[in-house]
Amino acid sequence: MNAVSLVQVKRSMRIDFLRLSATGKSSVWVIVLMPLLFVVMGMLGGDEMTTFGFAGSAVGVCGMFASMLPMIVASNEEMSGNSSMNGIIPATRLNQVLARYAFMIVVDILAALEAMVCLVLLLHFDEPPVTSLIGIGLSVLSAALFVGSLLMPLFYRFPATQAIGWGFGLLGLLCLVGFGLYRFVPQSAFLASKTSSLFTTHMGLILGIVAIVAVLICLCSFLISNRIYANKEL
């Protein structure tokens, strides 16, 4: 990627940020601050279980928002009649797609960092917390990348409302398949328990593999989105 492409990606990312804040910059702050609200509630909560609950909620909310933000951009763009602007801005379609994915990755990294901050504020770690924190940060990043990568091509392919439907449908299907395998295929339950025990002993390795898989899925997703967008009539 050369400097000219970088300029175009930057242009498109700035416009994407405007699309995100289209419903009011305050809504962006709500998204950023909500996990911290769980932290405050966890601090005021009292017993350990409640604090753990709020810590989990804060991490979950970070992950969820990270997955959703790029989709909000895409649906805002379409529903507000802003799609045709993509046809006039001096940025190639490839660089526009690159910008959308870069935007997603930046949001996902920020969400992972925020999840780690929330945990540091809420939990007392017996050991030096770096390994566990990085582990949780990587988990949030990988999960958000995975969900985002799954949904992004749908927003390029379908109108926003249909894409949301397809996205939820796909995620629901994945959950059902996972549950079905775990419940009805004894070998998969055995594999899950093995992975779980491996996770405690080789957390770094497993998270590394998960992160690499998430990045590969993201790359495939980018290629598919680019192909769809290159042929799309704006």
């Binding site: 405007l18 009649g81 602007m85």
Partner: peptide
């Protein structure tokens, strides 16, 4: 038809 987002202000 207007290509600016309906949600934007003129400033945005």
């Amino acid at each position: 038809s207007c290509f600016f987002s309906n949600y934007w202000t003129v400033g945005m």
